[in-house]
Nucleic acid binder design. Structure first.
Lengths: 220, 220
DNA sequence: CGCCGCTTTGAGGAGGTTCAAACACAGTGG
DNA sequence: CCACTGTGTTTGAACCTCCTCAAAGCGGCG
């Protein structure tokens, strides 16, 4: 949240986000069909969101980490349209959406923030569509790794090392690939000396090579 | 827009949407990088939105018709993140976003509406991700046709006949397929007697067959 | 230790892409 | 009026990437 609020306003914001909820690894924060009541701000932990078709196919629609907001899919129909699952033990702030709407009528900065968060999600999904529609397997994985490490770095973590919170299958689902294809791409990057991989641990040795794979043209 | 506004409120809404803009076929309503000022409500016509990567690949992110809102991609960064191109001569209402934010502080129903519109876009993009990540070519085209005809029907048009406003290439870009693959899928549906196709004209002869292709499980 | 979930690797196959050529249709101008 | 042109579409054949199926390997945990 940006600053620029008075003490009184901060108090109201604090009241809104006072409620916490813990979710253990593997448990659902909410699932498709649940009544929509609140948005959730992730305090600690790592989530995936996924939708499933009636015939049982699953699509991971995003991975969310501390500081990010989830649940906006529920606003349109007053019911959630995806599942949110904790990939590690997690804690969220429960923010009742009616409170958010009420408060953001008084606090233009909060209103603007809510709009930006939703717009950011729209833009993110646009770039995932680009990924899924136009890119080859290795380009997708390169983009995925670069995005993850960039977000982790913004949270004070390393920009070259990370521990994946999700399985190859979940990465594959997000990227529109099978788990074997993801594994092969990891192996290829490793053989080429671009990354070091050991199970969930990944170290990015040649970030520029990764960027070049993600976006070839820029480097011609 | 839903009703439930007083006469005074309606006047304010009218003032906000008074400004119109005409866009000829092939012209841009806005393009990536443009400063974000307004959302646009389509009054007449048909648009596509698309993003392009630095190496020139294009991804159509959506097709929008009369009654739908575009431009929400611009909120997050105060600059648009995609191009909006008219696929036929069109007219839009220009709705300055600062006015929208100002008014929606006074009108909870408007505020709620703005939130729903953005949430709807997020949910729509989720289902496109499912399409791109999990479905085969014919399933994608079936889903696309069913979605189009359903939206047209909601506007009082036929639920079995439509004239496509976009090329095979644009459909392909949206669905993550090449234009030849789209063409072949049309031909296949036509051979199977599911649809009749003549260039841009399409008649859905067997909607149930199309639904079955889109979602096999439901019909087992 | 031995089980279980996850990952890696290989071989073969399928769906979609690429390249190429012919066709349909609308608009233009002789 | 009709040939001419350009854009968009259809169809075919060869190819390539990714998927499928299968088996083995790794690592954590009871």
């Amino acid at each position: 949240m940006p600053t620029g609020f008075s003490a009184d306003e901060m108090q109201k914001l604090d009241d809104m986000v006072e409620k916490r909820r813990r979710i253990k690894q593997g448990e659902l924060l909410f699932s498709s069909g649940d009544e929509f009541v609140s948005l959730y701000a992730i305090r600690v932990g790592f989530f995936k969101t996924c939708v499933s078709s009636e015939d049982g196919r699953e699509q991971v629609t995003g991975f969310q980490m501390a500081g990010e907001i989830i649940g906006m899919d529920g606003i349109v129909s007053d019911h959630h349209n995806c599942n949110a699952i904790a990939l590690e033990d997690a804690e969220v702030c429960v923010m009742p959406f009616s409170d958010i709407e009420h408060l953001s009528r008084e606090l233009p900065a909060l209103q603007r923030n809510v709009h930006k968060i939703m717009s950011r999600e729209i833009v993110r999904e646009n770039s995932v569509m680009m990924l899924l529609g136009n890119m080859r397997a290795e380009e997708r994985l390169a983009a995925f790794l670069l995005n993850l490490v960039q977000r982790l770095h913004a949270r004070g973590l390393s920009q070259s090392e990370l521990v994946l919170r999700m399985t190859r299958e979940e990465i594959g689902s997000y990227l529109g690939l099978k788990l074997e294809t993801v594994s092969r791409a990891f192996s290829k990057f490793s053989e080429d000396g671009i990354i070091e991989v050991k199970q969930r641990y990944v170290r990015i040795v040649e970030p520029d090579a990764l960027k070049k794979i993600f976006n070839p043209q820029t480097y011609y």
